Simulated scan of single mutants.
Amino acid sequence: MRCFLCNMPLTLSHHGICSQCVKNLPKFNKICHQCNLPHSLSTNECYRCRDKKPYWDEMIAATEYIDPLKKLIQYLKFHNKVELANALARLMFLAWYQRRLSNGLVKPDIVTCVPLHHLRYWYRGFNQAALLAKPIARWLNRDFQPHLLSRKFAAHDQKNLSRKQRMNNVKTLFKCHHNLTNQSIMLIDDIVTTGNTINAISQQLKECGAVHVQIVCLCRTIL
């Protein structure tokens, strides 16, 4: 087994990406702990989140949406390279664990993922967010509930919409029918761009009783 990035032999084949490539991944500078975007304040929270607080509580991303992980995500999603999922999930878990060590991040009660509409699931054959979430839940020894949320109808592709259109596109898209009273939720997605999708989902989770929602993604687009 060789590293997915540098093609060198792996000592631990199940890692998928060697320790040297992990060390060389692009790093964030100072970021807001809530939205994972760069900021220059002395606090952990940026002015954007102070001005308009999102429904989720914390966000952790492994890196920006740039190469080399951008290419691996595209291979996973559009070229059915599902063997990448475990290695990419490990990067997300390492990013979460580093935040836990430095800031005392709470361990969630439930791990879930951003759902796909059933037509897109049928076309692709899998939900990439679920593939990433399942091993993370196992490593955390937590319950994985991939169907905690439902997607009510197929939306327009977010990447082709303006910011305002994206916000309107997700307002009534997701629904949670479970009682989450006093539960802490980890929501997994592969890429976070504007945050509108995860904010709509986080609102649903909070309305169902969740007391804490943390977002863990592989890549965060720097707007």
Rank of each mutant, 00 (worst) to 15 (best):
H117C: 04
N24K: 14
S19Q: 15
K70E: 03
F93Y: 15
R99F: 03
Q158W: 08
D190C: 04
M1D: 13
K77M: 02
L10R: 06
F93I: 12
Q128A: 10
V211I: 06
H15K: 07
C32E: 04
C35T: 10
Y97K: 12
V106H: 09
L69A: 02
T197P: 15
G209S: 02
L94V: 12
W122D: 07
K71E: 13
H33W: 02
Q34T: 15
D189Y: 13
S19K: 15
T112F: 05
A137H: 06
V22D: 08
L180V: 08
Q74L: 15
N141S: 02
H39I: 05
G125S: 14
H14E: 14
R90S: 05
I222C: 06
N141C: 04
I17N: 02
H15Y: 13
S162C: 15
L41C: 01
Y47E: 06
R50Q: 05
L12P: 01
M8L: 13
L187H: 06
K77I: 05
E207D: 01
A200Y: 09
A154K: 12
R90Y: 08
A130F: 08
Q74R: 14
H33I: 04
M1S: 15
R48W: 00
P115D: 09
L25Q: 11
P108W: 08
K175P: 04
V170S: 05
L180A: 11
K30G: 04
L132F: 06
L149F: 12
A210K: 02
L116N: 04
A95C: 08
K71A: 14
K206Q: 12
L41M: 00
I136Q: 11
F4C: 04
E45Q: 02
D57Q: 08
N127D: 07
H14I: 13
V114Q: 04
S19A: 11
C113V: 06
W122A: 09
Q165A: 15
R50T: 05
C18R: 14
L140W: 10
K52I: 08
Y55Q: 15
Q128C: 00
L131P: 10
N86K: 12
W56L: 06
D143A: 08
S202K: 03
G209N: 01
L101C: 10
M1F: 11
T193L: 03
F28N: 09
E45M: 02
L72P: 09
R166C: 11
Q203S: 10
R138I: 03
L140H: 06
F78Q: 00
N7H: 14
F126M: 11
P146Y: 07
N196K: 09
I222P: 01
T193V: 05
L94N: 09
R90W: 05
K23G: 06
H147I: 01
H178E: 10
L76D: 09
R100Y: 06
H33E: 06
A61I: 03
K107M: 09
Q204S: 02
F144E: 08
F153E: 08
V192R: 01
A155H: 07
R166L: 11
P9K: 00
R166W: 13
N24I: 00
I191M: 11
D190Y: 04
I66M: 03
K164F: 11
K206H: 10
A130W: 10
L205V: 11
C176H: 01
K175W: 02
G209R: 04
G125L: 13
A89G: 07
L131Y: 12
C219L: 05
D51W: 07
A210V: 07
A61V: 01
R163D: 04
F144S: 07
